[in-house]
């Protein structure tokens, strides 16, 4: 009788351990991404618009492990009303335009480094959910995600204040908005 009770308890432990472990593990990335996104919106970051972030310093770290040598521009992408179009100009040094899904996967990365072969003068990307019509993409790279919340990021090497200001000057001419 005692042995049977021990085995029953053990079996219940193993099954619920596995369920809880994987439920929590799979939920964490989305929860963390959502918390970061909510925090940025609370600080006034608009949706579907590029926003230059201040030069990275110990006082203004929005995410873990920021690179202090890079200038960042962020767009909180919302696809609930349809696809979103991104554009970003090339940069004379290292640079990239990347898109992240709600589950934190890096689903797209395109070079903005003018020294790299095939880097266009202006990179053009359309982000859409599965099944959304992107019409005539006009040569743009198409990125598909499963959920309406996504995250676009421009990184440009800017180790000095002058380089940061030059990167900042490019943001108003870039697009992050409904297609």
């Amino acid at each position: 009788m005692i042995m049977r009770n021990v085995l029953t308890g053990l079996a219940a432990f193993v099954v619920t351990f596995a369920i809880a472990h994987f439920v929590v593990l799979n939920a964490l990335p989305g929860k963390i991404m959502s918390k970061v996104r909510d925090g940025m919106m609370e600080r006034g970051l608009p949706v579907n618009a590029w926003q230059m972030t201040p030069r990275t310093s110990p006082e203004n770290q929005a995410v873990v492990r920021p690179a202090p040598d890079l200038a960042y521009a962020i767009c909180l992408v919302d696809l609930s009303e349809g696809p979103v179009e991104l554009t970003a100009s090339a940069w004379p040094d290292y640079g990239s335009l990347s898109v992240f899904s709600a589950s934190t996967d890096n689903v797209y990365a395109g070079s903005l480094d003018a020294r790299v072969a095939d880097t266009p003068d202006v990179r053009h990307v359309i982000v859409a959910m599965e099944g959304q019509d992107v019409g005539n993409a006009d040569g743009a790279d198409i990125v598909r995600v499963n959920k309406p919340d996504a995250f676009a990021l421009i990184r440009r090497l800017a180790p000095s204040q002058d380089a940061y200001e030059a990167a900042k000057d490019l943001v108003p001419g870039s697009q992050c908005g409904p297609l």
Binding site: A12, F13, V14, V15, F17, A18, I19, A20
Partner: peptide
């Protein structure tokens, strides 16, 4: 067993 499993799993 279930309560301990849920806690330990999380």
């Amino acid at each position: 067993g279930s309560v301990l499993g849920l806690g330990a799993g999380a």
